Amino acid sequence: MKVLQLISGCEKCPRRVYYSAGQYDCSAAEMRLPSLAELNGRPASFCPLADYAPSTPSLSERVAVLEAALRPFADFAQWTDAEGWACNIHREGISVWFGPSDFRRARAALPQALAPIGEAGR
């Protein structure tokens, strides 16, 4: 879906359709609109359209979240050998060292942190 135009109230909204006797409906909400005088240039309180410019995290904020999520893994990596395994720790025991919350946090952070700029937060 594309943004076709920015509107600040119901008067210019493409979803505003004429009903009868000077009254208008909102086709998005399927409700009768108050008069323009009552709206005073604002959208109706029941307007279902999303507000413009949802806040998206900046690149530095996304990197910070990703770094925090990966910190336990980076800290552990300093104790690994050339093959990537820590001495005296069985390979099967790696998930014991990191709790499920570490894996869930990293998994949740990756898609948003790696999304192209402008797509994060969707």
Score class of each variant (00 low, 15 high):
Gly84Cys: 07
Ala74Gln: 09
Ala115Lys: 05
Ser55Tyr: 14
Glu119Thr: 15
Leu49Asp: 09
Trp97Phe: 15
Arg42Ser: 15
Leu59Arg: 15
Glu92Thr: 14
Arg16Lys: 08
Glu92Phe: 11
Ala21Pro: 06
Ser60Val: 13
Arg42Asn: 15
Asp81Val: 02
Ser55Lys: 10
Val63Ile: 13
Ser55Asp: 13
Pro72Lys: 03
Met31Pro: 03
Lys12Tyr: 03
Arg105Gly: 04
Asn88Gly: 09
Pro116Gln: 08
Leu114Thr: 15
Ala69Arg: 02
Ala109Val: 06
Cys87Ile: 13
Cys10Trp: 00
Val96Gln: 06
Ala108Trp: 13
Trp85Tyr: 07
Gly99Asn: 01
Cys47Lys: 05
Asn40Phe: 05
Lys2Asn: 12
Ala120Asp: 07
Ala37Asp: 15
Arg71His: 11
Lys2Arg: 14
Ser95His: 05
Ala44Asn: 09
Gly121Leu: 04
His90Gln: 11
Arg62Ala: 06
Asn88Arg: 14
Ser35Trp: 01
Ser20Pro: 03
Leu33Glu: 00
Asp25Glu: 07
Gln112Thr: 15
Gly118Thr: 10
Phe103Asn: 04
Leu49Asn: 12
Phe73Ser: 00
Val63Met: 12
Arg91Ala: 13
Ser27Trp: 02
Ala86Tyr: 04
Trp97Leu: 11
Lys2Gln: 14
Glu11Tyr: 04
Leu59Phe: 15
Leu66Cys: 06
Glu119Asp: 14
Pro100Thr: 10
Ala82Phe: 04
Ser95Pro: 00
Arg122Ala: 09
Ala29Ser: 12
Cys13Lys: 02
Leu4Asp: 10
Leu4Cys: 05
Tyr24His: 10
Cys47Asn: 06
Ala28Met: 13
Ser101Ile: 08
Asp75Lys: 12
Ser27Met: 02
Leu6Thr: 15
Ala21Tyr: 05
Gln5Glu: 09
